[in-house]
């Protein structure tokens, strides 16, 4: 029986001034009534983001509010296998949908003083800390690609895109890095 090493291969692997691709992670789309899920998730020591467009972290897992009944759960790849059974146990009896999307998307980290400038090249959102504080997360667009954006610190963002859009997004970011290098 042939068995592969089964190492995850990313659709784009690159970095430049201001950004880098992150290692593969575990991602799940959780759809559930937040009011019904808040207690059980808390009891199971799993995060649930209640505030609009904000992320919540608990242990190894973070929950990103993407819609009124939609959370993106993000964790380490090494913890991937244990999440589904934990969730199933926690949400037993609560109508929900949990779908593994770990391979659907990959993450880029933007950091440093040029991070917001790189984002402004393709994303129409205002990254002023008053409207997008640390913890802000949302689905939005980067040029012609849909992305999920998560502000993890003042100058540190995580940007997730579907895998076939990643070469496009990283290509644009590479252009942006050139501009940052030229000091513009």
């Amino acid at each position: 029986m042939l068995k592969l090493k089964a190492a995850r291969t990313l659709p784009a692997r690159a970095s430049a001034l201001g950004w880098r691709m992150l290692d593969p992670r575990s991602c799940w789309s959780l759809r559930v009534d937040l009011v019904a899920a808040a207690g059980p998730m808390s009891a199971a020591d799993l995060p649930l983001a209640i505030d609009v467009c904000r992320a919540a972290t608990r242990g190894d897992w973070s929950a990103l509010w993407l819609g009124p009944d939609e959370q993106l759960l993000v964790g380490l790849d090494s913890a991937h296998a244990q999440l589904a059974p934990r969730l199933a146990a926690a949400l037993d009896g609560v109508a929900h949908s949990i779908v593994d999307v770990s391979h659907r998307q990959a993450a880029i980290e933007l950091s440093g003083p040029g991070a917001t400038r790189l984002l402004a090249m393709g994303c129409p959102l205002d990254f002023d800390l008053r409207s997008a504080p640390v913890g802000f997360c949302t689905r939005t667009v980067y040029a012609k690609a849909e992305v999920v954006l998560w502000r993890q610190d003042t100058q540190r963002f995580q940007l997730q895109a579907w895998r076939s859009f990643l070469p496009y997004v990283t290509g644009l970011l590479a252009l942006g890095s050139q501009e940052l290098t030229a000091g513009i």
């Binding site: 993407l66 819609g67 009124p68 939609e70 949302t138 689905r139 939005t140 667009v141 849909e146």
Partner: peptide, 8 residues
């Protein structure tokens, strides 16, 4: 529809 946002 906030298609590239909350999708509602």
């Amino acid at each position: 529809r906030h298609i590239h946002g909350c999708a509602r």
